[in-house]
Amino acid sequence: MNRYQADVPDGLSRRARSFVRVHGLRVGSLAVEDYRSEWLERGIPSAEIDRVAAFGERWGGLALPPSPRYNGGPRFFTPDTPETDPSGGWWFEAGEQRASVPYGFMIGPDGEFGVHADRWVPLHATVEGWVESLSLTYHARLWAKSITKLVHDEVETIDLTGYVEVPEVVGLADSWWRGPDSLVAIYRGEAECLAFPAARTAYIYSGLDDWGLHG
């Protein structure tokens, strides 16, 4: 294996494993244990440091292709110093932005992947959910016969009757839905984080056969 080729974390779908194997790279990441003593002296609980260390071990240094939203998402996964929020709990950075955006990509108190500015908005219940969403994006773009983009209030007009939510995405603010011959991706996280409803966006990937739907 090329030393920069990404190893594939377990717990991903077959499609996502293939996506990471083909498109992912491993680069440098924060060595959490080098900071443990300093963080303990600053009052950061040992359990929170353990959580950051586990994230770094599993995901640290993993660089994936950009997301169609959030100006591409993190450049690569790398944690940073845990911090508290007035609402309680501990967060830590998931990775630096690819471009200038008014929020950070964070891992929440319960392991959620989300965006944080003046408010915290979890996008997916797990980091795996973000990776699954990315893999679905590239899969759907490859196999769809047509792609329709909807924005702002248009997003609320989508009729999801007969659709089922894609479970591996574990969507919260963002979600994917599978229908008879199409996939629908709905992104509400940026709109909720910035209190900017116009940022709501959806993509409808139509004309998919069984392989295109399921991969």
Rank of each mutant, 00 (worst) to 15 (best):
L172T: 09
H139V: 08
G162H: 12
C193Q: 09
A195Y: 01
V169K: 01
R188W: 01
S146V: 06
W177N: 08
P180I: 03
K145I: 00
E192S: 10
S133M: 13
L183C: 10
G179I: 12
A140F: 03
T161S: 14
W177R: 13
T148E: 15
I186C: 05
V151S: 11
A144C: 13
A140R: 10
I186P: 05
S175H: 04
V184Q: 07
E165W: 00
D181F: 10
S133K: 01
L183V: 10
A185P: 04
W176V: 08
Y138R: 02
E190Y: 11
T161P: 01
R188S: 07
D174K: 03
V184S: 04
E190M: 11
L136W: 14
S146A: 15
T148L: 13
G189Q: 08
P167Q: 12
L183Q: 10
V151R: 09
D174F: 01
Y163H: 15
A144T: 13
P180M: 04
E154K: 04
A144I: 12
D174M: 04
E165S: 09
D159V: 08
P167R: 01
L134V: 11
W177E: 06
G162D: 01
V155Q: 03
L150D: 06
V155C: 02
W176Q: 09
A140P: 11
